[in-house]
Amino acid sequence: MAKKRVVSIKLNGDPVEFLCEPRQTLLEVLRDTLDMTGTKEGCSNGNCGACTVLMDGRPVTSCLVLAVEAEGAEVRTVEGVACGSHLAPVQQAFLEGAALQCGICTPGFIMQTEALLAENPSPTEEQVRFYLAGNLCRCTGYDKIVRAVMCAADKRRAAMDD
């Protein structure tokens, strides 16, 4: 077993330090070391998107990122999307639009949507579908997810105009 390393990151705004083995993924550390189990594991090889988090604003599949690679990065997970007890527009839109059934894919979709809307505040349906194509959902058939993302975009723009 290789020696453990100390890694410092900013997690949902707070500085966090943890000890990890070089072979551990960011996903494993988030879930098992830091007890942030909101980020889900569906495949551990980058194919399902359930483990999506934002690293320095970029969406990454955390099962493919080694924890040591996150050194110095700003990491955002689903636990950091709501502002206190106020849900973010994306979360609100998913709830109101019934965009989840079992909900296991939802944290990944929410993070990917956050990244999309930061990049492109008014995406077309086609752009939404393209950007979210790396996130698998087996329950919903995507209809209500795509609608919720479009609706979240509207909500965010409205909030910004206020």
């Binding site: 007890d35 189990t37 689903v78 636990e79 979360q91 998913f94 989840l100 909900g103 929410i110």
Partner: peptide, 23 residues
């Protein structure tokens, strides 16, 4: 009618506990 599901907030905030989340 279409009320918001009771477990909804837990599921959009990552707080819902699935099988792998047990400690």
């Amino acid at each position: 009618t279409r009320p918001i599901r009771h477990d909804g907030v837990d599921k959009v905030t990552g707080r819902a506990k699935y099988g792998a989340d047990i400690r």
